[in-house]
Amino acid sequence: MKKNRKLSAVAAVSAVALVFTGVGASSANAAGEKITFIQGVAGDAFYITMGCGIAEAAAKAGAVVTTQGGAKWDATVQKPVLDSVIASKPQAILIAANDKTVMQKPIESAIEAGINLAPTTNSDKPRPRFSAPNEIKTAISKAGTVILCT
């Protein structure tokens, strides 16, 4: 029994250590306006590039971007990620929605939680999506806006 307690203590301590290592890596978002970018899928070059553009535009607008994303291009994976991001109450959310049907209600629930909606894409006039700091500035000033990049 003593040995068991030791084992579970080791497990608990290593969990704590892991959590704090993670915090160290992300403590940058303490200052400035907080916005979150939800990638279509984590670790994909396309969304990393998109994230760079967002970070650059956000920096000009005086905001700091936290990037999150599901491990797969799968709306069932993305939904809980969006739920948690909404819970973290950022000033603005930018999301590359995996699926318009599945993500519809979760995004609506963001709006119900007092967050506005500002789509940035225009189907007949393609343009670089996140080269516009003004777009992000507006989003932040609205105290929490969901930007859809589809």
Partner: peptide
């Protein structure tokens, strides 16, 4: 997962 996202840790 939800805890990591809320405190802003990379998803991996």
């Amino acid at each position: 997962q939800t805890g990591f996202i809320i405190i802003g840790v990379v998803p991996f």
